[in-house]
Amino acid sequence: MSHLLVDHIVKNFGPNEVLSDLSFSIEKEEFVTIIGPSGSGKSTIFNLIGGIMTPEKGVIQLEGNNIIGKRGSISFMPQTPSLLPWRTVLQNVLLGAELQGKKDRDKAIEMLHKAGLTDYVHARPEELSGGMKQRVAFIRALLSPQSLICLDEPFSALDELTRLEMQKWLLSIWEDYRRTVLFVTHSIEEALFLSDRIIVISAKPTRVAAEFKVPFKRPRDESLFLDDKFLKWKRTVTYSLKNVGSEKDGDANRRTYPFRSI
């Protein structure tokens, strides 16, 4: 059974047809990235999985259970860190767990140490840099009890250097605390560096345009960015993303490239 199953989802906002027949699934402890044009409905997918919107049609299942309209079944990291300014870093990372009624203070402190935030455990968010705030937001998501973590373009507001640092950091933490991850990004390099699988979605009305299994072995490090194979893959994904804007008929364009670079 897949960890998350999204099947034939249709979502409109009035006359604005956003998701048309979107389907994909994620396996347990898999890191899957969705990449697609801006405005294609990536955040909408999260809102549907998070239960704060309901689809017109389709099925969304978490470990076999219907979660349509059920809030709190996933753990979430937004694009802006959204840390509460009156809480300390420690109180902030515990928020997600607190909402579900299961706080573990010791584990939180241990994770903050691992994340290099030892000096900031009792600091307030305003004292942190942008990158540190995102670390805190990610740890908050990791400490939440839900089994699936959804990240909506978490690094897109950071500068280039910080972003690379954060990607490496995210991978190392994730390799320690394996969870199922659904990640959304604009950046093809980010997607290739982080994920096991990439799902390319088309422009509105949105459906899955292509799927790639990323073959790079873990643990990965930044030398991967200069690897020939990596560059070839980057070209492939870029090409598939360029195509999605114009083509309209769905399944004909849906290609899977398992373990094969072009």
Partner: peptide, 21 residues
């Protein structure tokens, strides 16, 4: 801010948690 409310909703906050927290 909307971002804060959105996070709380996604994290499954109930109406009273939304208010008090």
């Amino acid at each position: 801010p909307y971002a804060h409310k959105h996070y709380m909703l996604m994290a499954g906050a109930g109406k009273s948690q939304m208010f008090w927290k």
